[in-house]
Amino acid sequence: MSASGEAAGGAVAVRPRARAAHPESRAARIGRLVARGPLNILLIVIAVLWLVPTLGLLFTSLLPASEITTSGWWKVVGQPSIATFENYSALFDNRDIMDALWTTVQIAVGNTVLLVIVASLAGYAFAWLDFPGRDWLFVVVIGLLVVPLQVALIPIFSLYNDTGLFDTVLGLVLFHVAFGLPFGIFLMRNFFAGIPRDILESARIDGASEARIFVRLILPLGLPAIASLAIFQFLWTWNDLIVALTFGRDTQPLTVAIFSQTRQFGSNIDLIAPASFLSLAIPLVVFLAFQRYFVQGMLAGSVK
């Protein structure tokens, strides 16, 4: 997880330094390892502590129906033979949950694509185009970074009821784009601002239009920042509960579908456990695959 400082023009400027290689004798190294034995053990214990809750959910979801309401997840560890996928096959046959999964995918992908486009356009304008009130407007964007979305719930609820956007995927997508924008613009603008001026100037002198510069030059150079933003937004909307709970009734993403089950937590743990694991497995894979970009984005804009 080497956090490259390239994307960091924002809140925390961090530049990792290469450590000087210390030539070390074998004896010295063994001595050091022995001295660090307790530290290693301590860190292993902490790492296991941090992994147990998630693994516990996985193992719980593998318990057979006869055990799941009475036993803990460690039963599967002690007796691996009782592990079963029957909860998952029931889950995949569950229409409501599968519909919810599809809704989640639509919301997360749709709004991520839209946000990346809108935020890149605005980020470029803030970084490289001259217009009156530019700095003032960017200060407003920074101010909007911390606005809690609660302030918009009631008026947008009324607006959606009046316009037919209530209970639609589009309504949820648009709301997520709007509240992802301050961070998105902030991230893109700071990254684009780090592109050397010469490259842009020479393209302009050559007569390229701003649209052409944006598509052919800025977007390819901005890919790392775009990746960061896309992962952030994907995870953020995949994991959203409050927005979907407010603006949807039948349009339910996974989180809302599971939430409606938790009202009678206990008896239906055979549904809640595998559904929860399903809902976290996909962002987890995305996260592990693109961890580097996630960390870069976080370092560049840890004010959200």
Binding site: L51, L241, L280, L284
Partner: peptide, 29 residues
Amino acid sequence: AVFMPMAISLFAAGVIWRIMDEKDPAQGT
């Protein structure tokens, strides 16, 4: 390992801990 929960929704994290925190020692970790 420590960073991984960041990818999980706060909602799912809540479900995880609800199972961890069950009162019955036979179920709650």
